[in-house]
C-alpha cells in the first residue's frame, strides 16, 4: 500500500526514480539477487575507527580478545576505547595501579564513579 504520493514535479521525479530502481528488470539472466548491505567491520583493532567497536567482523565476539580482561589495559591507553573505561587522563589516572594483572587481580581495580 502506498502511503505517499508526489505533489510536485520534483517529488514525481524522485518517485519515478525509486520505482525504476525497485521494479524488476525485464531481463535478469542468471543474476543472483543482490546481497543485502551490511556494515563492514574490519578484523581486530584498528586505528581507522575511533572509538573502537565491540563486535568482530562476523558480528559476534569470537574474533575479539579472549577473555576481555586481557585487553582492558589497552582499551584506555592505546586502542581508543575511552568511553568504556575510566578516564586515565584527568580523573582517574591510577585506577589500575593496584592491579598488576587484570586477569588475576581484577578485584583490585578501582571503582570509579562519574
Amino acid at each position: 500500500m502506498r502511503h505517499m504520493r508526489p505533489l510536485n514535479k520534483k517529488a514525481a521525479r524522485i518517485d519515478n526514480y525509486v520505482v525504476s530502481r525497485t521494479t524488476d528488470e525485464d531481463v535478469v539472466a542468471l543474476q543472483s539477487p543482490p546481497a543485502p548491505q551490511r556494515p563492514h567491520v574490519p578484523m581486530a583493532c584498528s586505528l581507522m575507527f575511533t572509538p573502537g567497536w565491540e563486535v568482530d567482523a562476523a558480528g559476534g565476539t569470537a574474533g575479539l580478545c579472549q577473555p576481555v580482561e586481557r585487553d582492558i589495559y589497552d582499551c584506555f591507553v592505546s586502542c581508543y576505547w575511552p568511553a568504556q573505561v575510566p578516564d586515565h587522563l584527568n580523573n582517574a589516572p591510577d585506577w589500575t595501579s593496584k592491579c598488576a594483572s587484570a586477569t588475576k587481580d581484577w578485584r583490585n581495580l578501582d571503582l570509579v564513579f562519574p
Partner: peptide
Amino acid sequence: QLIKTIELPGDPSV
C-alpha cells in the same frame, strides 16, 4: 610447540 611459560610481575599490555 610450546616449550616454556615464564610468569611476569604484571601485564605487558600493548
